[in-house]
Write a protein that binds this DNA or RNA. Structure first.
Lengths: 222, 222
DNA sequence: TGACAATTTAACGAAACAGTACATAACTGG
DNA sequence: CCAGTTATGTACTGTTTCGTTAAATTGTCA
């Protein structure tokens, strides 16, 4: 427990003792806290447990984050930020509208699937009535991008006559989110009640394509 | 605090002191506990708070339910049972397949919307990895009905050539559930991030019809 | 080199919380 | 109407858990 610091200083200087690394310590705490909150919920997570799993001590959590709520707040912001930045890689401009929408849907489906911790934090935030998200200015605005991206695709599809009139980009986004989100958030209970035909490996591949079918059929002309 | 019992005995006999009412007490505890768990989560709910809101005392909760987990377990079962029984009223057999499916979807959408406590309990159960649902035999089986109901509609639609081949009743159920569930479960965060255009009164009416459109278009032939 | 920032350790305090001991009142069957 | 059982209330206990204290140690930078 006290030797790991030695082992980890793979940097240039090898003095005895430890290296100051405030950002690293912060990041490490956030990472551990995210896992712990995601796993147990806000009220369920234990500060001592979080502390024990960091490379540092409980004292430092309070040093950097004040209290449990403060830590959770930062975890929430960090998680939203990471997930949203992960979404930007997508290049859809050069694709035909239908193809772009299918690509976006499948990407979102996979993305949510690969970030269960994010999903669970959002679930937890909903359980807590969005109390913490409410007081975080930072997060709003970042999300309008998602809508604009869809709007661009949708408008192009309208022009080309492949999408029907009367859909709102917001509703399309809602539809994609709902299906991608629910797939992760309710995996456990759904599998328990109805079997895991939709959630084993093949089932997920199939479900993903059905989800984008559903989205495409929803906006398609005729 | 000690006079309320007098005030509440509006029954036939007016003896001094209190009246025994084990079933009433149990039911009252469950009702209060459901609200409290739904509102605060399993770890977030406080036994003292639950006790204070019942017409009885903390002692009785432990007397009837053993411990906090036991109470939660009963709340979970009770909630599932109530919600499922509420779903049986629906008479779809005499309707045309498309109409039946639309009716079922809109019913589910409304039903979830009117039972946010149930939704929240399911969310909580998912947060806790389905630990309690896993150990409840009672609940499984009741839910196969939902699938059969859809299967009946779908098969009829296939015969009549109004539905396409290759859909599974399970997937259709998943689709309806996902949209109806997400609408309630993520109301808070979605509204915060994207505004409440979909969640005010008119928005919900519109969304409901869009949701059933999406479901119908998903299974429709052509 | 000296001041300040980062970090460790270990123990402690106080409040919140789940769960219990004990007494007693109401019912029920004989 | 009495004895045994069920139901209930009050007050309490022991533990968990958040958060703090205090003092020492090491790094950083001007």
């Amino acid at each position: 427990m006290e030797s790991q610091r030695q082992a980890e200083t793979g940097k240039t200087i090898q003095r005895q003792g430890w290296k100051q690394d405030p950002e690293g310590v912060r990041a490490n705490i956030l990472e551990v806290a995210l896992k712990e909150f995601a796993d147990r919920g806000l009220s369920g997570a234990r500060m001592d447990e979080i502390a024990a799993k960091t490379r540092t001590s409980k004292r430092m959590i309070y040093y950097y984050f004040g209290d449990k709520d403060g830590l959770y707040r930062k975890v929430l912001e960090q998680t939203y930020r990471e997930v949203r930045t992960g979404e930007k890689e997508l290049m859809l401009d050069h694709l035909a509208p239908k193809e772009a929408l299918r690509r976006l849907t499948e990407f979102t489906f996979d993305h949510h699937s690969k970030n269960p911790d994010f999903i669970r934090i959002v679930m937890i935030e909903n359980i807590h009535h969005g109390e913490y998200l409410k007081h975080s200015d930072l997060i709003r605005g970042l999300n309008q991008e998602a809508i604009s991206r869809i709007e661009a695709i949708y408008d192009k599809g309208l022009e080309q006559g492949v999408f029907r009139k009367g859909c709102s980009p917001l509703a399309i986004h809602w539809l994609i989110s709902a299906l991608s989100f629910f797939n992760v958030s309710n995996k456990v209970t759904f599998s328990l009640l109805f079997g895991d035909a939709l959630h084993d490996h093949d089932g997920q591949l199939d479900l993903r394509s059905q989800v984008s079918d559903a989205v495409l059929k929803f906006v398609a002309e005729e």
